[in-house]
Each structure stands twice: as C-alpha cells, then as structure tokens.
Design a protein around this nucleic acid. Structure first.
Lengths: 218, 218
DNA sequence: CCAAAACTGTCATGCTGTGACACATGTCGT
DNA sequence: ACGACATGTGTCACAGCATGACAGTTTTGG
C-alpha cells in the first residue's frame, strides 16, 4: 500500500495479470483472423486461455475493447509525437507529421508495434461495423486530449475558442477518410501511412484553393 | 401484386403498419426522455404500444435505430439541399450552406421536422455513448452518398480521386465537431445550426491561414 | 368467399455484460 | 514462516439485445 516505486512489474501478481491479458489478446486476434470478429464469441477466447468468460470481462469492458487497446496505444504515441513537433510548424502540419510518423512506425514494427496485427485491425475495421463504430466513438472521446495539446500550442483557451476543437476534429477526420478511401480501393497504395498523408495534403490544397474564391455564405 | 400506383398509402395494412411504427417511435422517445436511453428497454417500448418485443425488431433493426431514423431523414434532406446548391459555389461553401439550412429547418420545425424531438436527440447523443457511436457509424456509412454528389459537382471520378471523399469527410467532421463543441459548452450559442456554421467558418479561415505559411512536410 | 400473402405472437436460443458470493492465491508486516 | 488482508478468479444468476422458427390471425385480391 506504500506505493514506494510505481514500477510496472511490482510483484508476481502483476506479472501474472499481464501474462493473462496478453494471452487473451493473442487468442482473440488469432480467432478474429480465423473466423472473423463477429463469429468469435467471448467464451471461445476465454476458453483458449483457460479462464472463465467472467474473467475476460474483468480485463476488457467489451469484446471490441480488445481491438481498441491498440488504438489506444497508437493514440498515446501520436500525442507524444504531436507534443514534440516544433512549435514553428502550423497546427495542421504538426498533426500531419505526427500522425504519419506514428502510422509508419506501426507499419514498420518500430516501438514494439506488430505490423501484422496492425493489418489485422485494418481488416476488421472494414469487415465489422461494430468494431468500426466503437473505433469512431473511441476516437471522438479521445479527441479532447488532442484539443488540449493544440490549444496549448496555439496559446488559446480551449474552453472559449472553437479553433483547437475543430483542428483536432480534422485530425480525426483524416483517419476516418483514410480508412474509407482505403476500403473503397480509391488509393493507389495499400500503405495506410501514405493514404493519411495524401488525405492531409488534399485538405490543405483543397481548402487553400477554396479560400481564393469568394466566401459567399448566402 | 400489380403495383399500379406506388402511392405511399396503398391499403389498410400499410396504414396500420405506419401507425404502429409511429406509435413505437413516439413511445420510444417519450420513455427515452423520461428515463434515458440506456435505462429504457425494448420491452417497455413495445408494451407501451401493446405489441411484442419481437414486433419491435421487425420495425427497427436495433434500439438505436429508432433514433437513427431521424438522422436518416435529415441526411436525405441535406443531400437534396446539396444537390440544388448553385454549381458556382465552391464545394465547401455548398456543403456549409446545405448543412446549415437543413439544421435550421429542423430547429424551426419546417418540412415536418419536430424541433422538440430534434433537441431530444441532441441530448441523447451527449448522454448515451451507444447512440453517439451508432450515429457516427451511420454518418460514415452514408458518407459515400455525399461523396458521389460532390464528385459529380467537381466533375471527377470518385473511384480514382481522393478529393471528393475527403470533402465529404469534412462535412461529417463539421457535424461531429459541432456536437463536441456544444457538449463541451464552448459555443456562445445553443443553436446547433449556428455552431455548425461557425465550425465551417473556422475550417475555412484556419486552413486558409495555414496555407499562407510554408508547407514544410519534412 | 376462398386462397395466398403478410403481419404478429409465442417460444426457444445465443451472445454480451454485470452483480453477488465463495474460494484460492499473492502480499505484507512481524 | 505465519497470519491478516487484499486481490484475482470461478460459479451462478440474471437482464437485455437480437434472431430464427412456427403457428395463428388479419388483409388482400380475385
């Protein structure tokens, strides 16, 4: 109860939990890839690791949560990347660079990311609406953290200024669009990072072009 | 079986179905507002109309579907508005005007929209993640229709050009951002239409501003 | 008025997710 | 090493969503 050191591997119990968790994730992804997300039941996943279904739900709030765990990791990494972008960069550029660099890291297996699993997630997003929906939801929930960082970078108060919120939304939007474009087969490449980069490019170009014209709001 | 006239009110059966459907929607929204979306069960809704739960699911694919029905209507109206925007307008301006006009119509009770129900939906989006998630999902699914119209307007092939996809994504994004901003209490107004308009304005201004600077992607 | 089509209710079933309680295991102070 | 306490797990029970199957009823149309 002293909490002397917040080390990740305190005792045996912690290690065991960690192992169980990883085993569950492994089993889940294996089954997801074999039979698809929807066709895989929580019971099957739990059986594979030889724990009860109840235990599964003590580790993950829902079946989708297994997948979202990785979104979470990527997201955290992205936030760090964003924070360390030079202050001289325009906001959208910083977002673009941060996003692209992290996704590239996933694809290349850097920082402990598993490229195969990354691909598997992409597949599931396309094939299972439930996963996709939860992912959108998760992204929206996490958007506030991006907003905070952007507001800091812009030197404005996020409670009184729309702009950081909208910019954070654009980042989220870029992800979704990239997914949609990839699923629709419109992109020339299969690399998610390149698609995201292109999407950002389109945003910048298209909106810049737009601003040359009149802003007739009538 | 002749299908001589495709009139909406063919026979008594059709009318009855329509009445049941409306009764279900009414009951659902009443209960949602009383007890909240999550606390309301399908059985309660069905009981209120004196039909079985099974019948409820013959009208709606899910509980969330009751709410999404209205999103659907608004969306359709928005597509029509978009199609009839003058071709001279830049794409984003057309999207902005189409979106704002439809939302204003909802708020003012035009075209048969119920402002009270519109407000109720807004409330539920904020309070129930399930509804919000499904709404995002739905929006993403419907995005392709916006894409098609925009592609037509731009005179490009949506199967080979990213731009219409990204622009459609921006429209979706504007909605989400508006919701988020509204829920966070950042906006100076409570009118959804005004918030959406502002969000579009920020997109245009901010990205135009950005384009003045260098596009250093390194 | 009768036969086909469509709608509904009932029943059975599967899956997700949660609460309660007992049992086993790990942890920590002494 | 031993006992007290905290924590994790299994089992059981349960509510809710959603779907398939089948039988009974109403509507439709000739």
């Amino acid at each position: 109860m002293h909490d002397i050191c917040a080390a990740p591997m305190a005792g045996r119990r912690e290690r065991k939990k960690q192992r169980t968790r990883e085993a569950l994730v492994d089993a889940a992804f294996r089954l997801f890839q074999e039979k698809g997300f929807d066709a895989t039941t929580v019971e099957e996943i739990a059986d594979e690791v030889d724990v009860s279904s109840r235990t599964f739900f003590r580790y993950f709030a829902s079946k989708e949560d297994v997948v979202l765990t990785f979104q979470e990791e990527q997201f955290t990494t992205m936030l760090e990347a964003l924070s360390s972008r030079p202050a001289a960069e325009p906001v959208l550029t910083a977002l673009r660079n941060a996003a692209v660099s992290v996704i590239r890291a996933c694809e290349n297996g850097q920082y402990g990311f598993d490229p195969e699993r990354f691909g598997c997630i992409q597949q599931m997003m396309e094939s299972s609406p439930a996963v996709f929906g939860r992912s959108l939801e998760h992204g929206q929930k996490k958007q506030s953290e991006i907003t905070r960082i952007i507001a800091e970078r812009m030197g404005v108060d996020p409670a009184a200024d729309l702009r950081p919120h909208v910019m954070a939304g654009l980042a989220n939007c870029a992800f979704h669009s990239a997914f949609e474009v990839l699923a629709a087969g419109v992109a020339k490449t299969d690399r998610f990072s390149e698609v995201v980069d292109e999407v950002f490019a389109v945003m910048e170009d298209e909106l810049a072009y737009r601003s040359e014209k009149e802003t007739a709001t009538g």
